[in-house]
Amino acid sequence: MKENTTDVVIIEDKLELTLYISGMSQKSMEAIRNIKWLCDKHLKDAFELEIIDIYKNPKLALEQHIVFSPSLLKKLPLPKRTLVGTLSDTEKVLKSLGITTEK
C-alpha cells in the first residue's frame, strides 16, 4: 500500500470488484448505491465493477462460495477480500479495499 499525500485517492492498481446481490432486495439496492457512490468519489476510473444477481446465477454463487448477501469481492489487487453487507460503513469499506484517503 502506498502512502500518498494528494487529495483524493490513490491505489497502485486498478481495483477489480464483483458485487454479488440477491435480486432487488433492499439490502442489494443499498449496496449498489453505496459502492457506486464510493467508486465515483474515490476511484474515478481506477476500478472495474461487475454486479451479479445470484438469483439468476445460482451456480456462480456456488463456485464463488457466496454465503452472505450482498457480498463484494475484491479480486485484485491482492489480498482478496470479501466485504459482506450493505457497504454502509464507508471507512471500513475503504480500509478493506486498500484505499487511503488524506484530507
Binding site: 440477491s22 445460482p58 451456480k59 448477501s69 477480500r81 459482506v84 453487507g85
Partner: peptide, 23 residues
C-alpha cells in the same frame, strides 16, 4: 468461509446459502 478475508460493512442476509441449497 474465510474469516480472515471477511469484513462486515453493514446489514446482510444468508441468501447465498438459500440459493446454493435451492440450486
Amino acid at each position: 468461509i474465510e474469516r480472515s478475508e471477511i469484513e462486515e460493512t453493514g446489514e446482510y442476509d444468508l441468501e447465498g446459502i438459500f440459493i446454493r441449497l435451492n440450486y
